[in-house]
Amino acid sequence: MSTLVIAEHDNSSLKGATLNTVAAAQAMGADIDILVAGSNCGAVAEAAAAVAGVGKILVADNAAYEHQLAENVSLLIAEVGAGYDNIIAPATANCKNIMPRVAALMDVAQISEITSVESADTFQRPIYAGNVIATVQSTDAKKVITVRTTAYDAVAAEGGSATVEAVDAVHDAGISAFVSEEVAVSDRPELTAASVVISGGRGMQNGENFKLLEGIADKLGAAIGASRAAVDAGFVPNDMQVGQTGKIVAPDLYIAVGISGAIQHLAGMKDSKVIVAINKDEDAPIFQVADYGLVADLFDALPELESKI
């Protein structure tokens, strides 16, 4: 048995999601290699080689892979992956974009966002916005899988000594091109990688009031998130959404402010280690999952909290 893990990276650094995915791959009990597809991504390959428990690093370094265009990278993964039993990737926006193409090219099902490996062919995954956990068994000889990274603790980033091999295959489908990107400029950590997250919901009343979260976020080194209700109401952009259809987070500390706690939202944050809820409605469902609940008007509680931490 052998497993190919697809590395998540930005051509300069290996993203933490890769380490959680290696942990899921270890649970499958096979030998693990990592594929780094990118452009000028030597530093990523070096970082991947240091990851504990990995056999070899395959590096496809070509301009065609610079922006992770799904049309190109999927062809590469399907070719390299042909020699493996499992191809497994983190359920990041990037890999969610690429992996179903790989599965279709190989004529196998994809098993999306697994949270548990039950056996070599059986996995658990949340469905219906996290209301239900399904156990599914695959009959495919080769398995294409994405991993909900918050379900697995990261493996050590150091201590490994994998060999690095170049892959020469160049696939440029020639039907898509990168135009531009707007990366949200922020001194704060990225939502899915932050150790503290503070999120606002409909109770924030408008986008302006999200400023109340910023002072606390600055003091705690936290990322700022939002519930789908706050996004739907137009308070904040969708890239801040925590929930089944947004980002899945599992920080050490999650502070939910003015969030009622719809299952859609809970599915995105319930694996957080410590959950704090601040809400003036003492019957809000969020209190049923919170370690510490504070029934208070957020417009009083937030300035006080900021001054006392």
Binding site: V132, T135, G293, L294
Partner: peptide, 24 residues
Amino acid sequence: SHLTQVKVQPPAERQAGIKVADVD
């Protein structure tokens, strides 16, 4: 068909914690 649904179950419940009296 490439997948069989073996079973479904409710998600693991998280235990509710405590209510605190104030910000302090």
